[in-house]
């Protein structure tokens, strides 16, 4: 089956190790595909190629069989794009800008735009220059979705949004996916990709480290516990023989994979003064998932 989005051996070298190198992946029609990686991994560079802003040094980038640079006009008829760094016309009002974008995209029906604005509680009256980062991001989101395109290219779409709006946005994405839209979602947060996407590529230093089913990654979820004990002796005893634990005075930091039951029961044997838990960062997850391979 031929993919709707095809990236074949894409290489763009910006020097000093920046850029993307031999990136290949495909996204089939109706699929939601994640694009995970820390900042500077090459997510945005790949998106720029898909938008036809830059030409590959080598390799091919196509959407619906059309070259993204040479056929940019026809590709854009199918694509809704949200840039990673928003830059909207500052001296226009929210409403003015949305109408301008709709007109540029030849979108005549404003019903969808209005529905989106209501959904995200978009401030349409103020000048964009005076808006907060979150408000601007919401305007950007509406611009992306108002044309009801087939393909969405979303570059870190939830940055700047508050948790409530993040939730609403992910709901919208799930709806669009159910309507058969193709989604490429770039993010540095696994949680976002996990909720919407079925497969995800992981980028690192401009290369694809792996393409995995999201389900498989979920199993490898780790937590980092930081425990402070009442006495140094307790900390010493607790940390002794515990794999993946590091002690500093009364404080023990440990990475726990899978079930936390036995870990918590072990900790309960000692006098605990404080406990903090966080999910692994993507960077840590990478290191864990690929072991020493990435050194």
């Amino acid at each position: 089956m031929s993919d709707l989005i095809q990236v074949e051996h894409l290489t763009k070298d910006y020097g000093k190790g920046r850029g993307v190198f031999d990136v290949s992946f495909g996204v089939s029609a109706g699929e939601a595909f994640g694009f995970l990686g820390p900042n500077g991994a090459g997510k945005t560079t790949t998106m720029r190629h898909l938008m036809g802003f830059v030409r590959p040094d080598s390799g091919r980038v196509r959407i619906a069989g059309m070259d993204c640079f040479a056929d940019a006009r026809r590709v854009q008829e199918k694509v809704g794009y949200l840039p990673g760094e928003l830059s909207l016309a500052g001296n226009m009002t929210g409403d003015g800008f949305l109408r301008f974008v709709a007109s540029m995209k030849h979108v005549r029906d404003s019903a969808r735009c209005r529905a989106l604005c209501d959904r995200f509680e978009v401030d349409r009256k103020n000048r964009i220059r005076k808006m907060s980062k979150g408000q601007k991001q919401k305007i950007g989101l509406v611009c992306t979705f108002l044309g009801d395109p087939e393909v969405y290219l979303l570059d870190e779409p939830t940055s700047g949004l508050d948790p409530l709006m993040q939730g609403r946005f992910l709901e919208l994405l799930e709806e669009e996916k159910a309507r058969g839209k193709t989604i490429l979602l770039s993010s540095h947060m696994f949680e976002e990709v996990e909720r919407v996407c079925t497969r995800t590529a992981m980028l690192r230093a401009g290369r694809i480290a792996a393409i995995e089913q999201v389900q498989a990654l979920r199993g490898a979820q780790n937590r980092v516990f930081t425990l402070r004990f009442e006495t140094e002796k307790a900390a010493l005893l607790f940390a002794d023989g515990l794999t993946g634990a590091a002690r500093n005075g009364c404080v023990v930091t440990a990475c726990v994979q899978g079930s936390v039951d036995s870990f918590l029961k072990r900790a309960a044997c000692y006098p605990v003064a404080d406990l903090q838990v966080r999910s692994q960062t993507l960077e840590e997850r990478f290191l864990h998932y690929y072991g020493g391979e990435e050194q």
């Binding site: 036809g52 854009q76 008829e77 794009y81 840039p83 540029m104 995209k105």
Partner: peptide
């Protein structure tokens, strides 16, 4: 960066 908005439309 606003050129991105102009090019993200069906125009050459």
């Amino acid at each position: 960066g606003s050129m991105a908005y102009l090019l993200a439309s069906p125009h050459t």
